[in-house]
Design a protein around this nucleic acid. Structure first.
Lengths: 209, 209
DNA sequence: GGGTACGTAGCAAGCGCTTGGTCGGGACAG
DNA sequence: CTGTCCCGACCAAGCGCTTGCTACGTACCC
């Protein structure tokens, strides 16, 4: 709208918007074409298939995400610093690709279950390895609590972070930086405290399901 | 399979399974009928439409959820106890309706955006009111931290809880009760601690977005 | 013998995608 | 400077198939 650059870019932008709002399966190529200002047949001059459009949106998002994670992990620092880095990197990725994040959250496992999205599952494993690695390191060094399994910690952090794409709309007064700071406040408290509420917290082995 | 009770029950169970796995839009009435052991046309002896099946699954889940929440809120106790009650009630609902929880998480806003699911949006508001009410009460009485807005606290709790339906598979050693206990450990630490990590936490007004 | 629970067959609409053609503008020979 | 050639970007039309759903027939059971 600001810069009517390439038609391909317009298609990708409008498709991501529709995919995020109504889901991939419920979005038709005619809707995408309408939003991009062309006819449905003309889509196939730019993309080989509908799946190809989904692929372009999601893979751009995943590539960017993994690049940020690699930078955080290779930067070093103590465990809490690196974990905080993952939190910030995740929310920055959400800020840059809000629609793609929603699509990935809603349809990732269906894309992975389908035929031709091998890198989706591979990226999911890499992302999981980054988080679980840090959490287990922090548990081993005593930086994090030991009375909650890592297998429970990780999904809580992951879902809380990625689902921000569904509800968070940044304003001038409260942007993604503030959100990251607040999330980190709650995460660090929740991960480090050994026992603050009236529940008998005894150290248990880190195994679940 | 064990007890081939009512065909209607079988249809609902199989439909919920399919809706959760592949999404509502991507599931066809023929798939549902196949899974239930009948032909697609025969579905319409039991249900008026595909939407009617979705409706039956989701509304049962929402009715059960709101009943549990009402019981918790009317039981009384201090703020932390009631909040803990909501956590337990939510995970119990997930345990009883795992597929419906997934469907609701993945497709709720699309159902609400569509035409004929008014109770979905209404239930979402009631659920949100329960959480936000308790969080603000705890913030006012000093039971919970004041340096993170309630509008940020609530989605973190909500998404972390409901998304358990996607990944958590209970075992004999670690069931929903243990999960609820561990979640509450992390929540209570994260909600009450004023500052444990190396971030300058000053009290800020509870406004976001 | 009426009602319930299905099967059978198929319709209208919509799906992703293909095909063949139009049109405008840049490249380039003369 | 002009004519022609070409090619990318798009339109118009429609193909084969699937979708949710319907009309009607039938077996069976109280």
């Amino acid at each position: 709208m600001a810069a009517p650059t390439d038609r391909r870019e317009v298609i990708l932008r409008e498709a991501a918007e529709l995919f995020a709002r109504q889901g991939v399966a419920a979005t038709t190529v005619r809707e995408i074409a309408d939003a991009a200002g062309i006819l449905s047949g003309s889509l196939y001059h730019h993309f080989a298939s509908k799946d190809d459009i989904v692929d372009a949106v999601v893979s751009t998002f995943l590539t960017d995400l993994r690049k940020r994670y690699d930078e955080v992990l290779s930067a070093g620092g103590d465990v809490a610093d690196r974990l905080r880095g993952l939190v910030v990197a995740s929310l920055e990725t959400v800020a840059d690709h809000p629609r793609a994040t929603e699509i990935y959250q809603n349809d990732a496992h269906r894309l992975a279950a389908d035929n031709g999205y091998p890198y989706v599952e591979e990226s999911a494993k890499a992302v999981r390895a980054a988080w679980v690695g840090l959490l287990e390191e922090g548990r081993a060094t005593g930086a994090f609590r030991r009375d909650v399994p890592v297998k429970v910690m990780y999904p809580l952090l992951r879902d809380g972070l990625w689902l921000t794409a569904r509800w968070f709309r940044p304003t001038k007064a409260y942007g993604h930086e503030q959100l990251a700071a607040d999330y980190w406040r709650m995460f660090s408290s929740g991960l480090t405290a050994e026992s603050t509420a009236g529940s008998a917290a005894k150290a248990r082995p880190g195994s679940a399901a």
